[in-house]
Simulated assay, not measured.
Amino acid sequence: MTTAELHGSYGGLYFGFCTLISHVLLAGITAAIVYKCLVLKLVHTAGHAFYCTIAFVFFMGEALLVRNSAYLESSLGPLNLNRLHAVLGLLAFLVGVGGIGIKTWQKLERKREDPNATVRHFKSNHAFYGIIGCALLLGSVLSGLPLYFINGGFTLKMLHRFFGLVGFLTLMVSQMFGYNTGFGRRQWKAHHQKLFKFFTFIATITTANYEFRRFVRDVAGLATYYFIGPDAAEAREDL
């Protein structure tokens, strides 16, 4: 076995292990929060937490993972894998916007019921990173859709990857801040909040690290193309 093959073997084991950890953590975090929200009958903030967790933690995390799955690519084929990736990304955006809309509507209703009530929109760290992440996710959706109808070129594909990766990281930061909100403090004890933060952080790293590696490689390829020439950079064929 050559050095390159040995490194490739170790790399495959490492990223495969990270993918397994990601699937378990994304599903576990989502299941725990969804269960709590269902127990609360999706009343008030529980509805917001229910939809946003499903969208931004599970759907978006899985959208990144499945796109980089060699097993799924060989089983489904590149076209169907791209479709699965697109469906998960679109669901993340639509369901997530619904979750944000629920919280915004509740605040507006509170203001109507009590005009003197202090209602703040997108002022907390949780809300700020959430709306920024949602905007980045919208950028990922808008840059990704044309790739199924036209040959968008390497730059558009890299832009799509940038929006998706940074959007996921931003939304997971919002998720971690969410454990500190009044809802999080009311529903979970302090040590449970710390566990949620820890597992969310690990899930963020294990889910994003392969996509981050590919993005850095693409940036290097693009820089090589512009500064050295097209013969020195290979165009990528996947999203």
Rank of each mutant, 00 (worst) to 15 (best):
M1C: 10
T2W: 09
T3E: 12
E5R: 12
L6N: 12
H7K: 15
H7M: 14
S9T: 14
Y10H: 14
G11P: 01
L13Q: 11
L13Y: 13
L13I: 10
F15R: 04
G16N: 10
F17T: 15
F17N: 07
T19K: 08
T19D: 15
L20D: 10
I21H: 00
V24G: 02
L25G: 02
A27G: 02
I29P: 03
A32S: 11
A32Y: 11
Y35A: 15
L38C: 10
L40Y: 05
H44Y: 04
T45L: 08
A49E: 05
F50V: 03
F50M: 04
A55N: 04
F58I: 00
F58E: 08
F59C: 13
E62K: 07
V66N: 04
R67I: 06
R67L: 08
N68V: 06
L72D: 01
L72P: 03
S74A: 11
S74L: 08
S75D: 01
L79W: 13
L79T: 10
L81M: 09
H85E: 00
A86H: 06
A86F: 13
L91C: 12
L91P: 00
A92I: 02
L94D: 02
V95A: 01
G96P: 03
V97D: 01
V97S: 08
G98E: 03
I100F: 10
I100W: 05
G101I: 09
T104M: 10
W105N: 09
E109N: 14
K111F: 09
N116S: 15
A117C: 07
A117I: 02
F122Y: 14
K123P: 00
S124D: 05
A127D: 04
Y129M: 08
C134M: 13
L136Q: 06
L142Q: 08
G144W: 03
L145R: 03
K157T: 12
M158S: 07
M158G: 04
L159N: 03
L159Q: 05
R161I: 10
G164S: 07
L165M: 13
G167R: 03
T170G: 05
L171K: 06
M172E: 09
M172G: 00
S174M: 01
Q175H: 08
N180S: 12
G182K: 11
H191T: 15
H191F: 14
H191S: 15
H192D: 09
H192W: 10
H192A: 15
K194M: 13
L195C: 11
T200C: 12
F201A: 15
I202P: 02
A203R: 01
T204S: 14
T204E: 03
T206Q: 05
T207A: 06
A208H: 00
N209M: 13
Y210V: 07
Y210L: 15
E211Q: 08
E211Y: 09
V216Q: 12
V216I: 15
V216M: 11
D218W: 14
V219S: 00
G221L: 12
L222V: 12
Y226L: 13
Y226K: 12
I228W: 12
G229D: 02
P230M: 04
A233E: 09
R236G: 00
L239C: 05
L239P: 02
